[in-house]
Design a protein around this nucleic acid. Sequence first.
DNA 1: CACCAGATCCTCT
DNA 2: GAGGATCTGGTGG
Length: 195
Amino acid sequence: MKVEEVLTNKFYNRNPELVAQELLGKLVVRKLNKTILVGKIVETEAYLSSGDSAAHNFKGQTNRNKSLYKDAGHLYVHKMRQWFLLDIVTEGLNVPSSVLIRAVEPIDGVEKMKKNRKTEDVFNLASGPSKFCQAFGIDLGLDGLNIMSQDSELFLLNNKNLSLEEIDISGRIGISKAKDIPLRFWIKDSKYSSR
DNA sequence: CACCAGATCCTCT
DNA sequence: GAGGATCTGGTGG
C-alpha cells in the first residue's frame, strides 16, 4: 500500500479558492487517544483575506479570530452557538484567508463517530461543518494547531485531485452577506455533503 | 454591563 | 422550510 504524503505549507499557501477545490477528496486524519478517525473531504467553502463581508476577518483581527492570521497550514476553530466550526488557514502569515470544512465521508473509526454523534446513520455523521467537528472530537482546544506533520493530532493526507467534471460549485450557505459569490465546492452526487 | 448577531443543528410541518 | 435551542465575543452606553 502506498504511503500517502502529509499536506504541508506548500499545499495550503495558495489562494483559498484553489485550496478549497483541491481539498475535495483529500483525507482528514484525527488522532483521539488510541482511536484514529479518517474521513474524505466532500464539501468545502473558501473565505477570502479581504473584501469578503462574510469572512471573520472582515472587521479586522480580534482575540477570537487571531488564528486566521497564522501562516498557512494552521487551524482556525471557532464556536457558533453551541457548535464548533473548523477552518484551515491558507496563504501567508497575516493574510487571513481560510477554507471551511463543511462535510466529510466517514472512512475509518466510524463506530467512534457514531458514538460521538449519537446516531447510527452514516449519512448524518459528518454532513455539516459542526457535525464533522462533533464526529471528529474537534473543539477550541485545536484552535491554532499546526497540522503540517503526522505527529499532529489532526492532519491531512494527499490524494489525487478531482477533475472539474466531478465538482459542483455554488454560493456559500448559512451566511447572510456575500451569499452569491461561488465559493462553495463539493463532490458532485456525494451522499455525504450537507445538502 | 447589556445587548445581539451569528460560517448550526434538530424537530416538527 | 420554519422556528426554537443555546453561547459568547465584540461593541457601545
